[in-house]
Design a protein around this nucleic acid. Sequence first.
DNA 1: ACTCCACAGGAAAATTGGGGTA
DNA 2: TACCCCAATTTTCCTGTGGAGT
Length: 420
Amino acid sequence: MVVSIMRSYGVLMNPFDKYETQNIALKGDLSILSVIHQPEEFPHREPQINTMVASLSGLIRGFSANNLLIYGKTGTGKTSVTKYVTGMLEEKVGDKVITCYVNCQTYDSPYSILVNLSKCIPGDSNIPPSGWTLDRIYDELVIKIKGSGKILILILDEIDKLVEKNGGDSLYVILKLMGEDTGAGGTIIGITNDSSFYERLDPRVKSRMSRESVMFSPYNAEELKDILYPRVTKVLNPESYDEAAISLCAAIGAREHGDARKAIDLMRISIEMAIRESSDKVSVSHVYKARDTLEIDVIRETVKTQPTHSKIVLLSVILSGERHPNSATTGEVSSLYADLCRDIGIQPLTSRRVSDYISELEDFGMINTTVKSLGRYGRTRYIKITGRENDIKRFILEDTELEPLKDIKGTRQFRLDENI
DNA sequence: ACTCCACAGGAAAATTGGGGTA
DNA sequence: TACCCCAATTTTCCTGTGGAGT
């Protein structure tokens, strides 16, 4: 790089010059390339938008609309498009419509959803975060909704989480509230990435949830490029990026089940990377580096948000793996976990719970497990960390509660050994 | 063919903790 | 303050199971 500058100017330069001359000039705010950014256009999503608009069109004439189910993998634009469509509807009909967006991963009990719903409706909202009976909140809400005289649209993002949790009871309560028989009325837009969601519903819930659905198919690499280009050109001048970098972001996003979010994040981090390195343009190598940091960020976030016990279980998996590569079993992890808990003076959970934590960690993609039968020696899960164990360990030990464990090694003698 | 290990994982009971009411 | 209600979490109890050893 420096060599090329020397060539072009024909002089030896001050080493600081490169920081002065080569920064990529940002045309626009980099947040255009972030998840928070709500775009005004949705390439390759016209059919979905049209279906949704048609489905909700009754509302502009004052009729109620059917409930709507939206399917699609992460990063296929479900949430953005839904917010866009409801936003447009609000623009059209003014404050006759209230939209309430609830992410069911965060708010997964009927209680918390109802509380959120209540907050969306204008008027006093003095429902405490817990304590009231569901019936009481329910009645209060019905009165509130009726009183407001508005049409309610409830967007339930990751609606499948409601069903997993308690067999659809939460969903039933909400459907009942939004149903016409209470007089409250309203439309529910459910968003899910689980294509079998509808099939798994309880019959009484099924009957209330109409079958009207919109599919968001994964983006392919070409489509992702069409999504990236308008955003990138708002941020960068043409001379500040390699076309190949965009193609690579699109390709990686496409490989990750057509994930636009991933592609966009990747592009943003690549740009940040290039700026930090004071390169003159964003290139493929920045994208590769960005992919790496992105991966680590995801891991850090996942680890950080785990409850303490889950972190200790994860640490036990890593330490077991260090002792016996490829052969950490549930039993081994459990007793190691119990030891670690005692080391730092907290009451260990039962192995049944640890077993559940192991399953949860697998869902998070932190570990892989395979059930194996060893005949006479029982049946157990073999547990393996999916990779980057050193990073994971580091993130686990960032928890101040677990600091006393920072020097622990897999080779340490554990009480487990005494029983063998 | 039968036993029996070391769990998996479902169901139900028990505990915990926020909040209300008398 | 004592006690009740409720939801969420955890424990307890349980049945099921693939295959090495006998």
